[in-house]
């Protein structure tokens, strides 16, 4: 199901929590929503889940508006940042409740997942540890067989093994059923291996949206020692340079474009040294956003 958010705004007591945000997520994508605390991620996700009514703009899933539309919401599961279950409930009773509310609920899937999570379904959920509670909510969410899964800061509190397991489950769901996932986080490193798209929010606005594979293939760090300073000017005209700094005789470039073409362009000037290095996602965003006039460090980390 394609998610389309168009120019959505929402304010609380006169302060805009999100301001004209637009966003598109294709079916089967895993979209990572990044931003520091208070950037408006949760508000955006709750609006997407049909909990909040957008003040301006539209939120549609599969072409249908979400708010107060059970037919659409049936395929959407919202997982809050802190797992919440009914008081006194156990996994069994929660499962029974979800079964009665979500027509897509699958007992078969619930049973299958028991093998993955290995939690006691009769035990009170309030006695579970934070990590176990989060596993339980993933278990319940996936058993509803959603088409769209909205996860607000889901990685918090999971051990690495469980984290990988959940990641694999999500990949599997995406591959098998075309599940669309939208995940928020305040830490890029947590989700960079999970997402195929990334959007960065700041102060209620969407700063950048990128497809990761393209981004990784497209941006390069080049260390070069040029023979003549004038070459640098010539290079600037030929390449899309995001960033440049000089460390002694060595110049550091962050350049966008095709790797082979970039290497070729530099070779023309026959530099003393030429190294093309891979960039971490974090570095890419720092340079990209620096280019757009933002200091990315405090926003991402």
């Amino acid at each position: 199901m394609m998610i389309e958010i168009r120019g959505v705004s929402k304010s609380f007591q006169g302060e805009k929590a999100i301001d004209g945000v637009s966003l598109t997520v294709k079916r089967g994508a895993i979209y990572g929503l990044l931003g520091s605390n208070g950037a408006g991620k949760t508000t955006l996700l709750k609006t997407l889940a049909g909990i909040y009514r957008p003040e301006e703009g539209t939120v549609t899933i599969g072409g249908q508006p979400v708010f107060e539309q059970p037919e659409v919401k049936r395929g959407v599961i919202f997982m809050p940042d802190i797992p919440y279950f009914f008081p006194q409930a156990s996994l069994r009773t929660m499962a029974e409740f979800y079964r009665s509310v979500y027509p897509g609920w699958s007992d078969k899937r619930f049973k299958e997942l028991e093998a993955v999570f290995k939690l006691d379904t009769r035990r009170k959920l309030s006695r579970f540890s934070k990590g176990m509670q989060r596993q339980a909510s993933v278990w319940l969410a996936l058993s509803c067989m959603p088409e769209v899964l909205i996860m607000d800061e889901p990685i918090d509190g999971l051990d690495p093994v469980m984290r990988r397991q959940i990641k694999n489950l999500l990949f599997q769901e995406v591959a098998d059923r075309g599940l669309t996932v939208i995940i928020s986080s305040h830490n890029l490193r947590e989700i960079e291996d999970l997402c195929d798209h990334i959007g960065i929010m700041h102060h209620g606005r969407m700063l950048v949206e990128r497809e990761l594979d393209e981004l990784k293939a497209d941006t390069h760090k080049v260390q070069v020692a040029l023979r003549d300073d004038r070459h640098a000017t010539a290079l600037a005209a030929k390449l899309q340079i995001l960033h440049r700094e000089t460390r002694g005789s060595v110049n550091l470039y962050i350049v966008k474009g095709d790797r082979a073409r970039i290497e070729q362009t530099f070779r023309v000037y026959d530099p003393y040294v030429l190294d093309l290095l891979p960039l971490t996602l974090e570095e890419i965003f720092i340079y990209e956003m620096g280019d757009a006039g933002y200091d990315a460090q405090p926003i991402l980390l």
């Binding site: 709750k46 909990i51 107060e68 059970p70 959407v76 919202f78 509310v101």
Partner: peptide, 16 residues
């Protein structure tokens, strides 16, 4: 907040 988010995210209209 928490129960509100849960109940209002369900595929049920408010009347219901």
């Amino acid at each position: 907040k928490q129960p509100s988010d849960l109940w209002h995210s369900l595929p049920l209209r408010r009347e219901r």
